[in-house]
């Protein structure tokens, strides 16, 4: 199966070069600073659903989030980064364990403002194949109501679990959020309208990750977090960033319960110093390229996919 030859055509590599050039111009004209942060850090990611890889005594980053936030805390202003990130075990038609990410932060912005900028960037990057690209905004609850007929903020764990079991054809021993992941990935994502940039926000508070919590118009506590979907695939994940050091520490401790991993004390120290109000987003660049080139698998946009690396 393994072969020496590249998995991407030369044209695909040229498209990547063009895409990176466009991204750099986009941010240069907007005075967003390009930064590089370490790939190898002393503390691993805390997210229980992401498995980091270890290299020697260090951890390969799974996103540049922690280090970039420390730059924000130091007062470096709007920043972006294009880098490789590493996630153990994530291999498939639309996943590669080593992949390219664009992450950026806007100081003083709301996540609604950032969603607009994400749409502008994606419309520009995909313009060659999609000359017009409409956007559609849905809350998490609206998406589940429309595509899975579930009233997510008011239905019990049992209802969610039974719905998920039917989709999975199995009882997988998952918690509520686990079953919601099944429903999102098996039913909602595939049903979203195509050729449209879909922004889903107002996630359940239990799926906040590093986003701020707030009450929505209906008085439901939600996470100020958004995801971008395009043609059945997740492209980006963004937050109104949590700035409270104590809350962040609580979430780290909760996430790392029962693991051997320790939390990133340097990030907590930086947050104690003070993170300005900001919004941030991470975008999977290989998938953007996949859509631009109408590729069937992520391997076709990587010079050497995982099995050939």
């Amino acid at each position: 199966m393994s072969t020496w030859s590249p998995s991407a055509s030369r044209d695909a590599l040229m498209a990547r070069q063009q895409m990176y050039r466009s991204i750099r111009e986009f941010f240069y004209t907007r005075s967003v600073l390009e930064v590089e942060t370490p790939l190898l850090s002393q503390a691993p990611v805390a997210d229980p659903n992401i498995t980091p890889m270890q290299a020697g005594q260090r951890w390969l980053h799974t996103s540049p989030e922690y280090a970039m936030k420390r730059l924000l805390c130091a007062g470096y202003g709007d920043i972006y980064q294009i880098c490789k990130v590493f996630r153990e075990g994530e291999a498939g038609k639309r996943h590669n364990p080593e992949f390219s990410m664009l992450e950026w932060y806007r100081v003083g912005w709301t996540h609604q403002q950032l969603m607009e900028e994400v749409a502008q960037l994606l419309q520009m990057l995909l313009a060659e194949r999609f000359s017009t690209l409409p956007t559609l905004h849905l809350s998490y609850a609206q998406a589940l109501q429309s595509y899975a007929q579930l009233d997510v903020h008011h239905c019990g764990d049992q209802v969610i679990a039974r719905h998920g079991q039917a989709l999975a054809n199995a009882d997988l021993d998952l918690d509520r959020d686990g079953w919601l992941d099944v429903i999102m990935s098996h039913q909602v994502e595939p049903a979203l309208p195509h050729n449209t940039l879909i922004f889903i926000d107002q996630f359940p508070a239990s799926q906040a990750a590093l986003a701020k919590l707030a009450n929505n118009e209906q008085g439901v506590l939600i996470a100020q977090r958004f995801e971008v979907f395009f043609n059945g695939m997740e492209l980006a994940n963004g937050y109104q960033e949590l700035t409270d050091a104590q809350q962040q520490l609580q979430r780290f401790k909760h996430e790392l319960q029962g693991t051997q991993r320790s939390h990133d004390a340097l990030l907590i120290a930086a947050l104690e110093h003070g993170l300005p109000d900001c919004a941030g987003v991470a975008l999977g660049l290989d998938r953007v390229l996949l859509h631009l080139l109408d590729a069937q698998s992520i391997a076709q946009v990587l010079s050497f996919e995982w099995q050939r690396a």
Partner: peptide, 15 residues
């Protein structure tokens, strides 16, 4: 056929 499915911040599955 196997499809690896993983919401960015969620559980990973194999369909």
């Amino acid at each position: 056929d196997i499809e690896f499915v993983k919401p960015g911040k969620g559980q990973a599955f194999s369909r």
